[in-house]
Design a protein around this nucleic acid. Structure first.
Lengths: 227, 227
DNA sequence: CTTATAGACGGAACGGCGTACCAACAAGTA
DNA sequence: TACTTGTTGGTACGCCGTTCCGTCTATAAG
């Protein structure tokens, strides 16, 4: 616990060596021994540090899962919509902070099917974590479990949508796009015990209910003050 | 093309042998040579037939992708909602028809992390296929690409929700539950050029917009007649 | 009937992954 | 100094998935 500096640098050197070699020769043409040799350690040490060749690419996965869980556990009924948005934002921010490293990983994963599978497996873990909380929060609604699963999928999908746009340099303001994406995704969420004063709404329009509901959602969000 | 009977039985014997051994000793404790020996063929033949040990579990994947693509390609603007629902139903029906084999696979996949990753990879392929069509259909809407991705995720998630309930014996009428799940998932879809006669809606209720919209959606669905 | 060509098959060998085991070595403690 | 504790590298092993090659069978041509 106190030897972070030395231990961290060994792992970091392995990660750096791995990315170098992957970009030089490709993933499949790089052996674990190659990586270890360039990092100046033995092959055994490499597997002790990462467990598998794929793990070099996705190291902070468990950390992010933990942070999401914390954020969702801290939500009160009134702040759940916000908690969902912020928990998702934690992941986005993490990749934004990585900068070029995240883009290198994106290129790599996109070109190696085995890594794609690994990545989607990780994404699924996020989704299941969100679903676990949402099922609890929405179980009283009609089709609550289904709607919880759908919203969990939507949150993850919306996050990936914005993240991929940033990774491909298709946006200069990912945070704003993320806000909008969360707004759309959270159309599926309605606060649980909230019983607001009844309101008369009269509409004369050809807009579909979905469009109307999209317009009204921000009002509902604002009604739930953050703690 | 005409040697289906002999070729099919070899593959089928390998699949049968594989499932037997997986249930007897578990996935990891079963080698490719074990499977081949029990099926009465050589190890080389096994890898020629399936390419990898995982592939024995998910053989008809490409077939299903093809059928979905066909169904979506055949949709007209007026029948797209129905096409989405039916294309998804193709997958559900496939597993329902498999019966006990599907349940054996479910137990197996649930207990072996490597197979889980493989399965989610397959699911992601379905999702991407749906998204490809939906992006085309919805690109004119505000946030069209995002909404297309979300709906694709919802369709796949809704399907998996019902399928898993059936796999766990939590439902006796998966088709009806699937209808309802599709209804909820398709709340995200609004037909493209549809410009219905305007309607005045007066509501005095404490229900949220999302709930109201959920109630109204069937009316919209009925407006798009099937060809 | 014989020969030729193509395709399915099994065997052997190879590189690589991930694991298990072991010996060497450093650092802190009695 | 001796003893633990933990990290490291080396060796060996089983298995995966691929490649190469020789064998067998079947269908067609001569």
């Amino acid at each position: 616990m106190s030897e972070k500096p030395r231990s961290a640098t060994t792992k970091d050197r392995l990660v750096a060596a791995a990315y170098e070699l992957f970009e030089e020769r490709g993933f499949d043409a790089t052996t674990a021994e190659d990586i270890a040799r360039r990092a100046g350690v033995g092959r055994t040490t490499f597997f002790r540090a990462f467990g598998s060749k794929d793990d070099v690419i996705f190291p902070e996965h468990d950390l992010l899962l933990g942070r999401i869980d914390e954020r969702l556990a801290a939500a009160t009924p009134a702040t759940r919509a916000l908690a969902l948005s912020e928990a998702t934002r934690v992941v986005l921010r993490h990749y934004l902070d990585e900068g070029e490293l995240a883009r290198a990983r994106y290129r790599l994963v996109g070109s190696v099917p085995a890594l794609r599978a690994r990545e989607t497996g990780g994404i699924q873990q996020y989704q299941r974590l969100f679903a676990r909380w949402l099922r609890e929060w929405m179980s009283h609604l009609p089709d609550g479990h289904l709607r919880a699963d759908l919203l969990a999928a939507d949150l993850v999908t919306a996050h990936n949508y914005v993240l991929r746009r940033w990774l491909r340099d298709q946006t200069s303001d990912p945070e704003s796009e993320f806000d909008q994406a969360m707004r759309v995704a959270l159309e599926r969420y309605q606060p649980s015990g909230l019983e607001p004063s009844s309101t008369v709404v009269v509409l004369r329009t050809s807009a579909t209910p979905a469009a109307i509901q999209a317009q009204l959602q921000p009002l509902l969000d604002n009604e739930a003050p953050l703690s």
